[in-house]
Simulated assay, not measured.
Amino acid sequence: MKKLTKVCALFFALALSLSACSGGGNQAAAPAKDSPGTAKDGNELTIEQASMQLVKAVDEGKYKLVSTEDLKAWIDKKEDMIIVDTMPAKSYDKNRIPGAVNAELPVKLDETTPEQKDAFIKALGSDKNKKVVLYCGFVKCERSHVGALIAKEAGFTNIYRQPGGIIAWIDAGYETEGSK
């Protein structure tokens, strides 16, 4: 229960900056500026849906989460880790977290080809205890979740997912690599 509370708290902190990027769902009318809630557009249901999707994914995958801010601190400290961008090469080439490698994955595990799975596992390297950080586009994107499941299945033990993805990284004002 403590872990679930921690996951929810982390997600809601990220969700505040990502609510405009989550897309989908029914859109409510924008609230007055002094309205309570997390969603910038007034659609708290979208935030809740993304939160529940994330909580279920983390519970299913048995991996850890890392916030955008903590990942930036790890990079600044030059922690030994591999950062994997699971987005298509076109997105990776445009904007990526510094030092990230690209291993494109689909949004659903059952859509993963054997070639994608092999390339992904190869990108992780041979050290199964090395810290692996996975990210994709934004909270509702599940490419990084697919990567976490594949990494766990392959025997990697130190898996983190940065749920806000490249959008949260950019929203935080952090530098990116790529052609922009």
Rank of each mutant, 00 (worst) to 15 (best):
V133A: 14
K90Q: 12
K62N: 11
V84N: 02
D171Y: 07
D76P: 10
G165N: 03
V101S: 13
N158A: 12
A9H: 06
L18S: 15
G165D: 07
D59K: 11
G25P: 13
D118E: 15
P114I: 03
Q162C: 06
M52F: 14
L65Y: 06
P163F: 01
D85S: 07
I97Q: 03
I97G: 06
R96N: 14
L10F: 01
A148G: 15
I166G: 05
K62R: 14
K152F: 00
A9F: 07
D171A: 14
Q53A: 15
L124H: 09
A50M: 10
G24P: 00
K56V: 07
F120K: 06
F138W: 12
F138L: 01
V7Y: 10
D171R: 11
G147Q: 04
S67L: 00
N43F: 04
K72M: 01
E153V: 04
I166K: 03
G155F: 06
E153H: 08
K6C: 00
S126E: 12
V58Q: 04
H145M: 00
G173P: 09
K94Q: 09
G23T: 14
A154M: 07
K6A: 07
Q53P: 05
A28W: 03
Y160W: 12
N26S: 10
G164V: 05
T5S: 11
S19P: 07
I159K: 07
T176H: 08
T68M: 08
C141Q: 01
N102L: 08
E79N: 08
G173N: 05
V139E: 14
G178R: 05
A148S: 10
L65F: 08
A151G: 05
F156T: 04
K33I: 03
N158M: 12
E44Y: 07
A103V: 14
K2F: 02
Q162A: 08
E175F: 04
R96L: 10
I47N: 13
A50G: 12
E177T: 08
T113Y: 02
Y160P: 06
K62Y: 03
I159M: 10
P98S: 11
N43M: 06
G173A: 03
Q49D: 11
T113A: 02
G178T: 12
L14P: 01
